[in-house]
Amino acid sequence: MTTKTDLDRDLIHRLRIDALVADYIHCIDEDRLEEWPDYFTADGRYKVITRENFDLGLPVALIYCDGRGMFEDRISALRTANIYEPHVYCHMVSALKILDSSGPEIKTQSNFTITRTMSEGGMMTFLCGKIFDTVTEVDGELKFKERTVILDSRRIDTLLVIPV
C-alpha cells in the first residue's frame, strides 16, 4: 500500500513521470514517431513482450530495442520499408505506481489500453496490459532507461508496427 509518507516523498516524481508519459503517448498517437527515440536514454532498452512469455520466463519479445540505433531503425523501417494499412492508436495509461524511488533511477508500473483505428474507420481494442518503467534524469529531463510493455493478450491482430 502506498502510505502518506510515500506520497509526500514521491509527489514531484509522480507529477514529472505523469508529464513524461503524457508527452510520450501524445507523440505516438499524433504520429510524431521520429521523436520517439528521444524519450529514451542513449543506452535505453525497450521490449514489447506477451504476458505468456513473461510469465514463463521466456525472453523473446515482439519488439526489442537495445540502444538508440535500434529505436531509430524501428521508425525508419515503418516509414520507408514496411507495408500496412494506415492506422492510429489512442493510448490510455492509468494506475501509475511508484515501485522504487530510493535511488537516482525510479521504477514504476502502470496499466494501459490502446485502441486502434484503421483508415477505413473501424476501431478495436488492440492491446492492453502493464508497463514497467525505469526512469532516469538526463540533463535535467526525465527519460526512459528501460521500458517493458507486457501484453495481456498474446494474439496480435494482423500485425504490430507502431510502438506502444
Partner: peptide
C-alpha cells in the same frame, strides 16, 4: 523454446 507469438 525462447518464446511464442500469435498472430491473427
Amino acid at each position: 523454446v525462447l518464446g511464442y507469438h500469435s498472430q491473427i
